[in-house]
């Protein structure tokens, strides 16, 4: 599948933003969220910039962005529509929580409730994002039970790294490092399981089932419909990443999970300025790693329509 940069940025940026707001909301409910205006403004600000920026970026790949509001109407059948509706609803409780924490410096009562509701709404939104892909039977690498866990755990892990990084920059004690480490372990498990699953599951659709000619023998394309390219081939037939898939998986895993894990662990035992540097580097490394991971999520995925354009299995 063609990896559209706007969608890659959208899913990773909103994922980190929602993950960050989820963890802040939960910490508020437990009463362990430090009331520090500088930290509060910055972390809430970054979360909303990531979310709003991501949502705006997702409209850039539309043919008619001015009609984007129409996408809020078909929530009964469409995961994309559900995502749009939830993304907007999520601003309610998260906005109230942010108001309480930043403006009134209060994380109790209604603001704590808003924090928890916001956390649920954030994860629900990430869930709908993952279901847009997981519900497509046409793309085997997406129609996989591990897609949703990967989206959820990477959202929380990047959010936890962001929270730790910001907390250490502002010198507030958040005690999120342990949670970040656990989330990175879970992310490792989910992503490795995903890769193993898509590598192992054999293709349901083949050139034979696509043409219905399997009873006559092996089917292969002799002549394409046109000598040139077309929309289907450029959108669904993206192949550049596949030959580098193994290397890119290592890059995604190292930058997205392994290096942030080591840096976060190291930060717990370092003193002075070093933990701050380690925490910031962990965020930057994870950002690049998750972008590679998401790019690969698209570029590695093969659509069954390629069976009509020379692929023998999809």
């Amino acid at each position: 599948m063609h990896p559209a940069y706007s969608v890659i940025f959208f899913t990773t940026a909103t994922g980190a933003g929602y993950g960050l707001l989820t963890l802040l909301g939960i910490l508020a409910a437990f009463g362990t969220l430090p009331v520090d205006r500088g930290f509060a403004v910055t972390s809430v600000g970054i979360a909303f910039v990531l979310i709003v920026g991501g949502l705006l970026s997702s409209t850039f790949h539309l043919g008619h962005p001015e009609r984007a509001w129409r996408a809020l109407t078909q929530w009964r059948s469409s995961w994309l529509s559900r995502e749009g509706v939830l993304a907007i609803l999520t601003f309610g409780p998260t906005g109230l929580f942010a108001l309480g924490w930043v403006v009134f410096e209060d994380i109790g009562g209604i603001y704590a409730v808003a924090g928890v509701l916001g956390a649920i709404a954030c994860m629900a939104t990430v869930y709908t994002t993952s279901m847009i892909y997981a519900s497509l039977r046409t793309v085997r690498a997406w129609n996989d039970p591990w897609v949703t866990p990967v989206y959820l755990v990477l959202s929380l892990a990047t959010g936890a790294l962001l929270a730790s990084g910001l907390a250490s920059l502002f010198g507030v004690a958040l005690q999120l490092e342990n949670i970040a480490l656990v989330l990175l372990v879970l992310a490792t498990f989910a992503k490795l399981s995903y890769w193993r699953s898509i590598d192992r599951r054999s293709s349901e659709s083949t050139a034979e089932s696509a043409t219905g000619l399997g009873h006559l023998g092996k089917v292969r394309l002799l002549d394409p419909p046109h000598t040139g390219t077309n929309y289907l081939m450029s959108e669904m037939g993206y192949q550049i990443a596949r030959k580098h898939a193994i290397k890119l998986r290592r890059v995604a895993f190292a930058l997205g999970i392994l290096i942030p894990f080591v840096l976060t662990l190291a930060a717990m035992f370092l003193a002075g300025l070093l933990p701050v540097i380690a925490a910031v580097l962990a965020v930057l490394s994870a950002a690049v790693g998750v972008l590679v991971e998401r790019w690969l999520f698209f570029a590695e995925a093969k659509h069954v329509v390629t069976l009509y354009y020379g692929a023998s299995e999809a």
Partner: peptide, 13 residues
Amino acid sequence: IGCKLCSWACPYG
């Protein structure tokens, strides 16, 4: 709106 999702959902192109 030109989101292209329908073309992703169609197995037949």
